[in-house]
Amino acid sequence: MTRAVIEAERLVKKFGDFTAVDDVSFAVPQGSVFGLLGPNGAGKTTIVRMLTTLAIPTRGTARVAGHDVVRAPEAVRASMGLTAQSATVDELLTGRENLRLIGDLYGMPRGQVRSRADELLERFSLTEAGDKVVKDYSGGMRRRIDLAVSLIAHPPVLLLDEPTTGLDPRSRVELWEVLRDLVRDGTTLLLTTQYLDEADQLADRLVVIDHGRIIAEGTPLELKNQSGATSLVITVSRHDAVAPAADLLRELVDGLHVDHDARRLAAPGGDVAALAQIASRLEAAGIEVDDLGMQRPSLDDVFLALTGHRAEETANEEAPV
């Protein structure tokens, strides 16, 4: 059985009368990606701060690489890298200088620091930019150098707090590829995010956090299945075909939803046999379709079903530590 390298047991964090994290427990197996999913203010960052020894739990325990976050904070910090919400590199230094600075702070031998810096600059496609000051980097480049700095000492565990916030779509996809490479090499990732597509793309397992509590846990597929069955979805080619298609489909399915503007018709449930029957009837009626298939609930549907609001709807900011 794969051992857990990150463990939280009944974690609680209070700020006065405000409970930011309320009885949270989970375990992250080695070499996996574990996602903490929820809106701003849900408690995700507070959990990361406790795991990284930056905040002391009010109650409960946590361990990283077997080390207790309260009793052995130095060993915990030596076992992990952290990429926070905002880049923490020095903008007045070059990318290479930032890497060497952090390597020196870790007490790594100078020769090892130089070779590791070169290796990371190449890995993150920053070799040409390595000798430029970070303030001249693009947003995606700054995020990559920030991630590279967190890996300078080969940590087995990497905590990523909202790693792609503020990045354009292309930079996000590029960073996802880098993270997948790290996991393939054996790094264990704990990821906090409010982006449903990011969690779907990266996480092996998720917990959904809302108001400091875990409200659901499972793989992305398991969570989708919890929120409902698949739906039959048909998009007809012409607006004047929506009404006759709807009349036809109401004979075959229940709960039909019609979006005339999008030329889209959907109904809960269904299977391959029902889909084939619908396709045959539409063809016989001379109704052309652009798309016809079965659609699983999205993680956004999951979050809406669990909380009553969309994941992108932000809550109040978490209380400061």
Rank of each mutant, 00 (worst) to 15 (best):
V24F: 04
G60Y: 01
S280W: 12
H154P: 00
E312H: 01
L292F: 11
V70D: 00
L189M: 09
V242E: 02
I145A: 07
Q226H: 14
A4W: 00
A241H: 13
D210S: 09
V253F: 03
I47C: 06
V24T: 06
D168N: 12
R143K: 04
L191I: 14
L105Y: 06
E119K: 07
L11A: 12
T46R: 05
L252A: 08
S115A: 15
L221I: 15
T235Y: 00
L206Q: 10
I234K: 08
V236N: 10
L11F: 03
Y137P: 06
L147I: 14
G35Y: 01
L92K: 15
M50S: 02
P169M: 08
L282K: 02
D17V: 14
L160A: 08
G81L: 09
G212L: 08
T219A: 00
L160D: 04
G212F: 10
A315Q: 13
Q85W: 04
E288G: 14
M141T: 03
R63A: 10
P268S: 01
D197H: 11
R71W: 02
P163R: 12
P244D: 01
D168W: 06
A274G: 12
D204Q: 03
D118P: 06
A267V: 05
A311P: 07
D118N: 03
P220L: 11
E318D: 04
E217I: 10
R10G: 04
H67K: 09
D301F: 09
H257L: 15
V242L: 05
T230W: 13
L299H: 03
V24Q: 08
L202C: 06
G81E: 11
R184A: 15
G38R: 03
N225V: 15
T88P: 06
A243W: 08
G81M: 04
E312P: 03
G166V: 03
R123L: 15
